[in-house]
Design a protein around this nucleic acid. Structure first.
Lengths: 242, 242
DNA sequence: GCAGTTCATATAGCGTTGCTATAGGTGCTA
DNA sequence: TAGCACCTATAGCAACGCTATATGAACTGC
């Protein structure tokens, strides 16, 4: 009935919570189930994790490590937008492989309360998008691009999780993925000669320069000068969302 | 302490539940709170609604009527894709105006368990997309298009709800919206002359014909012939998602 | 007009939930 | 060996969703 091994109670609680969560089938998991499976009593849980949410946060943190490992596993291909494409698919696969954990991580939404893990995932994607911005492939500031892509990525993953397995259509994910990446990229400006379909080149250049400056830690400008300069660039690159 | 008026207990329960939900600030709402505010005792709730979820389903149904009213309020502009654009914005506005209700409706995701309301919202969008398909504006079968667009729409709305009010950026929603609509439309094929960027014209034609046939209830074919014919068309229009 | 039936609400309480006040045991340092 | 953190257990509280049972009210058939 209890998780064996000579692990300390804290680790046993984590393991029991993760296991029950994975097999809960979507229904709630009680602290009593967890403590019983871990072979400890209630106060032990609260001593180590504060409350139930604290325990779940710890489980989520472990899950996030796994998530990040998946997102970083492949070598950067040198084509940042291709890497974003792979990040999207990894995200979806993670959600479909461990739906209950995913729902705790990304499906537990409350008004005006952003879980830390969402910000982390966004930072991960923004980091990758920064590389695209440096090479002038981005039509939109990396932060905004990351936010939009991740929102669509989460939305699509949640929809797939809610669907019964045989009806899950991964092509919808692929289509949405490409649509989002295409929307934030400068690709559209290259495909056709039309002027107003993409951003003006000064905006693209500003976005690229901004990303490059932040990455290089250039010391050609004093820190206060750099700060002001970045602020201007930021204003330019945000100014004209038609 | 209790909701006044001479409404019957059932209506008072509905009203109390909706009010508590709207002011809950994201925290849970208990049946005891609801029955107390409605001025009835527990069994009354279970007599009328079966269980707590039944009551919430009823609240959601009322909320959905309001949602549909918003989605249908404007006259069809004759440009279906423009109407889809407005549906998207209406959806986001509905979510931001009543975040708690929205979360009960669209944020309560469990594995392999699709709430009826999601299917309803999808049908609403599919219906509109059908008009676009009839006039050959759709690159993708209406059902798949509706699914993808709604997934992104929900994802974006959930992200906006989770963000603090001053940080909510509706331009991200607009960008994502246009990206999704652009992705399912044949617009891209018209803008540039390239061949492989859009679907082949036979696929587009099949999609349009399929939608037109289903809409017109044509009796030129027997029902069994029609069924087979539709199946072929369906196969064609789904076959080549590059 | 009265018995029978159905509908609607109340009294009281069951089992479970998240959580805690308090105390006891264990191992380390002085 | 005394003292002190640290960790865990006993026991139980308040709140939760829900229900077995009973009572009142309204309608129906004779």
């Amino acid at each position: 009935m209890s998780i064996n091994g000579q692990l300390p109670p804290k680790a046993r609680l984590l393991r029991a919570a993760a296991e029950l969560l994975a097999n809960s089938g979507g229904s709630a998991v009680s602290t009593r189930q967890i403590t019983q499976l871990a072979g400890v009593t209630a106060p032990t849980l609260y001593h180590h994790f504060g409350d139930k949410e604290g325990l779940f946060d710890a489980v989520v943190a472990a899950g996030f490590d796994e998530y990040v490992a998946g997102e970083r596993d492949f070598a950067p291909s040198g084509q940042p937008l291709e890497d974003i494409r792979r990040m999207w698919d990894n995200h979806v696969q993670f959600g479909l492989k461990q739906p209950e954990l995913y729902l705790v991580m990304f499906g537990n939404i409350r008004p005006e309360n952003r879980p830390a893990i969402v910000a982390d995932a966004e930072a991960l994607m923004e980091e990758m998008l920064n590389k695209a911005a440096v090479s002038g492939q981005l039509n939109v500031p990396p932060k905004e691009a990351a936010r939009s892509i991740l929102a669509a990525n989460v939305g699509m993953t949640l929809m797939l999780i809610a669907e019964k397995v045989p009806e899950r259509n991964l092509e919808l994910s692929a289509m949405t993925r490409d649509a989002m990446i295409f929307a934030v990229s400068t690709e559209q400006a290259r495909d056709n000669g039309s002027v107003d379909s993409g951003k003006s080149s000064v905006v693209v250049a500003a976005i690229a320069l901004n990303a490059a400056l932040q990455a290089s830690h250039s010391d050609q400008l004093s820190s206060s000068e750099l700060k002001l300069f970045l602020e201007w660039l930021h204003r330019i690159s945000n100014s004209s969302t038609s």
